[in-house]
C-alpha cells in the first residue's frame, strides 16, 4: 500500500510502476513546519541568514545585537567546524547555540530542531539562524524560518544574483555588505547588483550596509522591527 497516494500495489506477476509525486525533501519540510510552529507558539520571529563564506554574517549580528536592545535575541550558528562564531555572539551577552555540521554544507530542519532544545524560546523575540557560508546548498532546505536574508559583500562582485539565482530568489531581503570598502571597489555597482536581482524575478528590497561603520544599520533594524510587528499582528489575528 502506498502511503502517499493511497494506491494499492500488488505486483504478483510482473514489474509495477507506482505514481508518487511527493517532494523529495518531504521529511525536511515536515520538520521545518514543526520548527515554525514552535516559533509561532512563542511569538518568535525566525530569520535565516545566508551568504558566501566571509560575507559578514557574524559581523552583522555583532552590530545588530547592541543596536537592538528592545529585542531579546538568540542565535543558532551553523559552521562546518569550530565554536568561534557562537563565542563571538555570546560575548555580546545573548544566547548562542553552535551547530557544527562536519562535512555537511548546509543546515537542515532536523539540525535546527536539535539546537532548539538548547534554546529557551520563551525568553526570545527574535532568533537568527546563521547558516553555513555557502550560496548553493542552504537554499534547498527549509528550516522553519519566517524570513530569509541573503548577504552579498561588495568584494564578491555584482553579478552574484545571476550566478546563484536559486539562493537570491529565496531572499526576502538582500543586504549589500562591507560598503565601507566601496571607494576601493569601483567595479562593484549596486545598480547592477539590483538589476541582476530583478532579472531573476526577485522583488526583495536591497539595503546597503556596513557593519563596521554603521551605514544602513538603521534601515536594517527598521526592517527587523517591521517584520516583528507583522509577526505579532499575525499571531494576534490567528
Amino acid at each position: 500500500m502506498c502511503e502517499s497516494c493511497g494506491c494499492s500495489i500488488t505486483p504478483r506477476t510482473g514489474p509495477a510502476e507506482v505514481a508518487v509525486l511527493t517532494r523529495l525533501l518531504a521529511d525536511n519540510d515536515v520538520t521545518a513546519a514543526h520548527n515554525r510552529a514552535h516559533f509561532d507558539d512563542w511569538g518568535v520571529l525566525a530569520v535565516n541568514l545566508m551568504s558566501a563564506p566571509g560575507a559578514g554574517k557574524t559581523a552583522l549580528l555583532e552590530a545588530t545585537i547592541p543596536a537592538l536592545r528592545d529585542c531579546r535575541i538568540g542565535v543558532i550558528e551553523g559552521d562546518l567546524e569550530t565554536e568561534n562564531d557562537a563565542a563571538r555572539i555570546r560575548a555580546h551577552g545573548v544566547p548562542a547555540v553552535q551547530i557544527t555540521t562536519g562535512t555537511a554544507c548546509h543546515l537542515d530542519a532536523a539540525m535546527v530542531h536539535e539546537a532548539l532544545h538548547e534554546m529557551d524560546l520563551r525568553a526570545l523575540d527574535l532568533l537568527f539562524v546563521e547558516n553555513v557560508g555557502n550560496l548553493v546548498c542552504p537554499a534547498a532546505f527549509d528550516l522553519g524560518q519566517h524570513r530569509n536574508v541573503v548577504l552579498l559583500s561588495m568584494t564578491e562582485g555584482d553579478d552574484k544574483p545571476a550566478k546563484y539565482p536559486v539562493m537570491f530568489r529565496a531572499a526576502d531581503l538582500v543586504l549589500i555588505t562591507k560598503t565601507d570598502l566601496a571607494p576601493m571597489l569601483d567595479d562593484f555597482s549596486v545598480e547592477r547588483a539590483s538589476a541582476a536581482l530583478r532579472r531573476i524575478g526577485s522583488e526583495a528590497p536591497v539595503i546597503n550596509i556596513s557593519a563596521r561603520r554603521g551605514e544602513g544599520i538603521e534601515r536594517w533594524l527598521a526592517w527587523l522591527r517591521a517584520e516583528r510587528a507583522a509577526r505579532h499582528a499575525a499571531a494576534a489575528a490567528g
Binding site: 500495489i9 505486483p11 514489474p15 509495477a16 507506482v18 517532494r23 523529495l24 536559486v166 524575478g201
Partner: peptide, 22 residues
C-alpha cells in the same frame, strides 16, 4: 521583470518501479 514562475523549481519523486515479486 515582474513574472510568476509556472514551473522549473520542482524537486519531485514522480514514480517508482518495482521488481516482479516472483
Amino acid at each position: 521583470w515582474r513574472t510568476r514562475l509556472l514551473g522549473g523549481d520542482e524537486l519531485l519523486l514522480v514514480r517508482i518501479g518495482l521488481e516482479a515479486e516472483d
